[in-house]
Design a protein around this nucleic acid. Structure first.
Length: 297
DNA sequence: CACTTGACCTGTCCGC
DNA sequence: TGCGGACAGGTCAAGT
């Protein structure tokens, strides 16, 4: 579920709501939700203030005043939802039920998917919900993040202004013999792309997902990189994609799916040429293509 | 090493 | 309506 635009949206939401807040209590359901929590985790969490929230690839980094950082991966079904103290203030009241009927996907929290709860001194709560239990929260000393193997292996951030198509091309050379779809999903090639934005970008660049990386020249990769940037930027603007259960920190859906050109549109007309969009399996994933615009290799 | 596949989980949807 | 099976947006550990 959450790919770069969704995690970015959550990151911005967390910055707004929890930076400066002081952690009063932390509770979690199982070891798996908080895998490397040491016995004395609480001493690095309780009483700590949220200093900053950042994103790298699909990982959230919540920096604490205690010198530790929470790394959070939402995997397929993770949610981070903040509910302020039930005070009359407009900035801290619970936000469920506002707006359109379909605006919010979450009800009363905690619910049965809630795995971790952070309670803040001001009465606010941050809920980590995760239906499929793939997601996790880990605690690391902030000083150890620079050489954290997970973080250092990530490829370039596609929306960083220093990232270039040439960098993508170079990184792709390590996956020359696989399909471009598999390569885009490889977080060490480029960070933050998942199934939705891989399909959308490849459609934009008129490249079939089964195309071997070795068959793409620099022109193809330039076009692809440009499409990746546009698709991700548009999705961030739309608050991300809610297909099943993604919600932002306020519990609200994103609307990128309404603007998708191929993803989840099998049997509908390609917006470019009108040919019916097909769903295939590439790199073991459901994959959407226009068979005319994206000619099979 | 490069690449593919299955496993991790729960919920939902589709066909019988 | 109930049940079984396929499938779901991400990543690993194993396998070839």
């Amino acid at each position: 579920m959450p790919e770069l635009p969704e995690v970015e949206t959550i990151c911005v939401g967390l910055e707004k709501w929890i930076v400066g807040a002081r952690i009063a209590t932390v509770s979690y359901d199982t070891e798996k939700s908080f895998p490397n929590a040491p016995q004395d985790t609480e001493q690095f969490l309780l009483g700590a203030t949220i200093a900053a929230v950042r994103r790298r690839a699909k990982v959230l980094l919540v920096e604490l005043s205690s010198g530790y950082t929470l790394m959070i991966h939402l995997k397929m079904t993770g949610q981070l939802v903040y509910i302020g103290a039930a005070a009359p203030s407009q900035t801290t009241q619970p936000r469920f039920g506002a707006g359109h009927p379909n605006d919010s996907l979450v009800g009363e929290l905690p619910d049965k998917s809630t795995r971790v709860i952070f309670e803040f001194d001001d009465g606010g709560h941050l809920y980590f919900n995760d239906q499929r239990k793939f997601g996790w929260i880990k605690l690391y000393p902030s000083s150890a993040l620079a050489d954290n193997p997970l973080l250092s292996a990530f490829g370039p951030e596609p929306l960083d202004k220093d990232t270039t198509a040439q960098m993508l091309f170079d990184r792709l050379q390590r996956r020359k013999n696989t399909t471009i779809k598999a390569a885009l999903l490889d977080q060490t090639v480029v960070a933050g792309i998942g199934n939705i934005y891989a399909d959308e970008s490849l459609w934009g660049a008129c490249i079939h997902p089964s195309t071997r990386v070795r068959d793409l020249d620099t022109k193809h990769v330039q076009k692809l990189f440009s499409e990746i940037q546009q698709v991700l930027a548009l999705s961030i603007e739309k608050g991300g994609s809610t297909d099943k259960n993604y919600v932002n920190v306020e519990g609200k859906r994103g609307s990128y799916i309404d603007f998708a050109r191929v993803f989840r549109r099998e049997g509908l007309a390609c917006p470019r040429c009108g040919t019916l969009i097909q769903k295939l399996r590439v790199a073991g994933r459901g994959t959407h293509v226009c068979p005319l615009c994206q000619r099979a290799p």
